[in-house]
Design a binder for these strands. Structure first.
Lengths: 140, 140
DNA sequence: CTTGCTTCTCTAGTGACTAGAGATTGTATC
DNA sequence: GATACAATCTCTAGTCACTAGAGAAGCAAG
C-alpha cells in the first residue's frame, strides 16, 4: 500500500514526468494524493494505466479515444462494442494516411527520377512542382 | 500589368485568403503593394508561385523546404543539387511515416481480430493495449 | 553546510494553419 | 442618397500532444 513518487512512475511506465503531469491536467490521469511537501504520490498500479496510455499513443490513438478506452478498461463487464468501434476508426484513419503517403511517395519519386541533375531550369523537381499537370495523378 | 486583389489570387491558386496572408506573415510570399484603401494588390504571376507552394504542400514539404524550393525556382541557372536533396529528404520522411503506419495497422488489425466481441474483460483491443507483450512485434 | 537530485508551478513554443471579432471599403440596387 | 451585401483589413486565440525553460522548494548524502 506504499505510494510512489512521479519519478518512479515515469521510470516504470516509460512516460516522461512532464507528460504525466500533462495527462493529469487534461484529465486523462486522476489527480493523485499529495505528500506533506506537495509532491504527487501514486499507487504503484498507476504505472499500468500509464503503460496502457503509452501503448495506445504508440498506435496513434488520440487522447480522446484513449480516455474512453482507459475508462472502458476499468469496467470488465461492459460489452466491448465501443472499444471495437474506436479501434476500427483508428484503422480507417491509418489506412487513409497510408494511402495519402503512398501517393505522395510515387509523386516525389517521379519528380526525383525525372530530374537530370543539371540546373534548375531543367530540374524535374522544380518543373513538376510548377506544373501540376506533369504529375502522375490528378488525385491531389 | 494590372494588379489583382487577394480574392482573385485565392480563386486562381486554390489557396485560401487567410492562408495567403499567413504565408506573407512568415515570409513565404513577398508583401505586395497596397491600394489606396490598404488592400493587397498582386501581380497576376503571383498565382503561379502560390500554385507552386500549394503543390509542394500537397506533397508534404514543410514551409522551410518550400521556401528554399520556391527561391530556387526563381534562379534558373543554379545547379539543382539542393532541390534534389530536399526532395530526397522528403522521400525518406515519407517512407519513415509509411513504415510506422504499416506497423500500426498490423497491430490494430491484430487487436481487432483477436477480439471475440464479448465484454471488456475478454476484449482483444483492451487486452493488448494493457499488455505490450501480446503485440505482434516489439518494435514500438 | 553544501552539493546535487527530484519535484513543484507556470508560461510559452512547436507547425501550418483556421476561426472569429470588429472595422472599413467597394459595388449594386432601390 | 440610402441601403444591402460582398470583399477586404487587423488582431487574437485556438488546434494537438506535448516539450522547453524559468525560478523555487524540498530531500538525502558527504
Amino acid at each position: 500500500m506504499t505510494l510512489v513518487p512521479i519519478g518512479w512512475l515515469s521510470h516504470e511506465s516509460g512516460v516522461k514526468i512532464p507528460t504525466i503531469r500533462y495527462y493529469e491536467n487534461i484529465g486523462l490521469l486522476p489527480p493523485p494524493v499529495r505528500s506533506e511537501s506537495n509532491r504527487r504520490m501514486y499507487p504503484p498500479e498507476m504505472a499500468q494505466r500509464l503503460r496502457f496510455i503509452r501503448h495506445a499513443r504508440q498506435l496513434g490513438f488520440d487522447v480522446e479515444a484513449i480516455r474512453r478506452l482507459a475508462d472502458l478498461a476499468l469496467k470488465p463487464t461492459t460489452p466491448c462494442g465501443e472499444a471495437h468501434t474506436i479501434a476500427c476508426a483508428r484503422l480507417r484513419d491509418i489506412e487513409d494516411k497510408i494511402a495519402r503517403l503512398v501517393a505522395q511517395r510515387a509523386e516525389v519519386l517521379h519528380m526525383i527520377n525525372t530530374c537530370a541533375q543539371g540546373c534548375i531550369e531543367k530540374c524535374g523537381v522544380i518543373e513538376i512542382l510548377e506544373d501540376h499537370t506533369k504529375c502522375l495523378h490528378e488525385s491531389h
